[in-house]
Design a protein around this nucleic acid. Sequence first.
DNA 1: GTGGTCTAGACCACA
DNA 2: GTGGTCTAGACCACT
Lengths: 121, 121, 121, 121
Amino acid sequence: MEFDNEIPIYLQIMAMIKTDLVIGKILKGDKLLSTRDMAVALKVNPNTIARVYRELESESICFTKRGMGTFITEDESKIESLKEQLVDDYLSQFMKKMEQLNYSIGDIITKLKRFEEATHE
Amino acid sequence: MEFDNEIPIYLQIMAMIKTDLVIGKILKGDKLLSTRDMAVALKVNPNTIARVYRELESESICFTKRGMGTFITEDESKIESLKEQLVDDYLSQFMKKMEQLNYSIGDIITKLKRFEEATHE
Amino acid sequence: MEFDNEIPIYLQIMAMIKTDLVIGKILKGDKLLSTRDMAVALKVNPNTIARVYRELESESICFTKRGMGTFITEDESKIESLKEQLVDDYLSQFMKKMEQLNYSIGDIITKLKRFEEATHE
Amino acid sequence: MEFDNEIPIYLQIMAMIKTDLVIGKILKGDKLLSTRDMAVALKVNPNTIARVYRELESESICFTKRGMGTFITEDESKIESLKEQLVDDYLSQFMKKMEQLNYSIGDIITKLKRFEEATHE
DNA sequence: GTGGTCTAGACCACA
DNA sequence: GTGGTCTAGACCACT
């Protein structure tokens, strides 16, 4: 995995895990890689992974069983709300910027449709 | 102006100026506020503004006349391409994230339309 | 190291690093001194070094690993082209001035040869 | 005339006048344009020209007759030594940089000859 | 310990 | 009055 140098690595990894969770690549209750293994897998400092897990834990997305590892929450509604939150965040951030540029929702939809057609060719 | 604590101030100011340029609030050839005045206006250190102007200059968005001030480029095509680039950047960043979440363009358009209707009520 | 008061220190340091790179005193992938250490070594403010590294990075001559330091690019062709560019810059600047003084290349070569002989004595 | 933004305009104008003098485009005793006219001709601030004349005067290259204008020195040996000084300055600056890059005089001559042949084609 | 950012304040060259 | 550079010192995020 390549990281964007502008954004803290731990945030990028957090986003990755959240995305995997939302799209079902990771399921509730799944055990996450140990910090050490994850660090090796992502070629990253173990401390960085430790921070990722700590932050995710503080968001109740995962939890730690002493001596056993870190696990995704069993709370399905948490995952569901995560999905909505993630999408809404992305959407509102995007809309805010586009509005600053005087783009209406209609303009954006037009632009997206052109995007879609271009892809279909 | 309020700054997002997560993003370097100088980047936020750069984005602000670019946006102003794209929506025509600033025009080609316009003189920008002096570093000192801009610093006062934004309640920021003059050095920070100096960096903003320096970086914008390295992007050919503005240029400096020694002892006279900093001016927006006279090159209209530069501004035009800036506009496209800005929108495309926002759009592609957004699309990338949404695709990672398995949203199709159609899904997004649907979501946007619902957004639009909600606003019209 | 002594600095020429006429030229910004950060430019002089950049030129020094480029020269070291070109003559093989620094090699690709090498870690540069930390900003603080380099600042101490050159008796200069750390901010000045930070600027040097930032500018060199924008020229793709070095890159930064978060929290780990600043490193010379691994791209050997970059270094190769830097060497050529540096020499060609020096040469063309020199030639331009000499031509303005109505010196032909032949004249210059003659002058250089006299220089060489003088040195050999 | 276009100015290099990196070098003070007054220095560039000084170099221009010196060059004109050395190549005989300006002769000893010649009257220089008035600061105002020169400023208009070069699209530059009159203060800048005033500084140019002041500096040239301090180098004994020109002198001022009250109410009559600024004139090139009548001292021919001054002009002669200026020529040598200018060339030697350019040469030694160039040589110093090339030596830092481990180029010998022989290398430079080789490079120059290739330059010459390329031009003759 | 690493670089990145920011502030405060100073001095300089230029127009 | 304009930007450019530099110092000093601080805080922060990341490894």
